[in-house]
């Protein structure tokens, strides 16, 4: 039985790859070929779809917009979550447990509930259709997650580290930046990865808060699907390209993830 153990992950990965393969396959076909027939590989191999995306600003700006707010959001979330997670892991304070639970409840509120008030709120403060608006809005669910993950990692760091540093004459900020942050890089990597991931894949709020200037790629895709009929090849190519940034990020953090998971209580 032990011999066939590798079969389980292999079959699982094959199952994961099948729809991705089909998307890739379609992205190299012309729309006519997609609608006209069925083939496992493109008969009339074309790069037209990709060319269109890389030369048409409405398309490639979508990618740049998405990347901009995702990066903003990851930086804001992790920076704000670091001191908070430290407080939760080291101190008892008035209402700490309830505050922690309240933070988590914000992951539970269905974004559909918030769409309209969010639009009104960000219009009222004059941030509608900016990258920063989407970055701030995504904090709603990313900050709680980042605090949760980082708290787990920080609790795994012995308190003696803090105490020795204070005895050595470090002030809190100097200890935090010079000693504490370097010891939990793996945790920061994992937290940043999850923030990137949830901000990159979210569409409902991103679409609600933008119209032209900061429109995310995912919204550009839905617009295309509805206005110019069914340009399946183009849609498939755009979809394929949305997978790439995620694949890059996970490739870079893969060691952190493996190591981080082993260390933290995630």
């Amino acid at each position: 039985m032990r011999r066939f153990k590798w079969l389980v992950p292999t079959l699982y990965i094959v199952f994961l790859m099948l729809p991705i393969y089909w998307l890739l396959n379609m992205s190299f076909k012309t729309t006519n070929e997609i609608l006209g027939g069925f083939s496992l590989l493109p008969q009339d191999f074309t790069l037209e779809n990709y060319k269109k995306i890389f030369t048409d600003p409405t398309w490639y700006n979508g990618y740049l917009n998405s990347l901009a707010y995702v990066v903003f959001n990851t930086v804001i979330s992790v920076c704000a979550a670091l001191p908070a997670a430290y407080a939760f892991s080291r101190y008892r304070f008035l209402g700490d447990k309830h505050l922690f639970f309240w933070l988590l409840t914000n992951r539970m509120a269905p974004p559909a509930v918030f769409a309209l008030p969010f639009f009104q709120l960000y219009s009222a403060i004059g941030l509608f259709d900016t990258h920063i608006a989407v970055a701030l809005a995504h904090c709603l669910f990313n900050i709680p997650l980042a605090v949760w993950i980082l708290e787990g990692f920080m609790s795994g760091v012995p308190k003696e580290l803090d105490e020795t540093a204070y005895i050595d004459g470090h002030s809190f900020p100097s200890f935090f930046v010079k000693i504490f942050i370097p010891t939990i890089t793996a945790g920061i990597g994992v937290a940043a990865f999850f923030c990137f991931m949830f901000s990159w894949v979210e569409l409902l709020l991103a679409k609600t808060l933008t119209s032209v200037e900061a429109k995310p790629i995912a919204a550009t895709m839905t617009r295309t699907a509805s206005t110019s009929g069914y340009e399946l090849g183009l849609l498939a190519a755009a979809g394929t390209l949305t997978i790439i940034p995620g694949a890059f990020v996970i490739y870079f953090v893969r060691n952190y993830i493996a190591k981080g998971f082993a260390l933290g209580r995630v």
């Binding site: 379609m26 894949v201 979210e202 995912a218 895709m221 839905t222 949305t242 996970i250």
Partner: peptide, 27 residues
Amino acid sequence: GVSVCLVLMALPLLIPWNVVGAMWNIF
């Protein structure tokens, strides 16, 4: 094998949700 499994398995998690829907639609 660990890295290969982790990277490939995490891939679906990183695809925007409407692309997941569209992908399964055409699949």
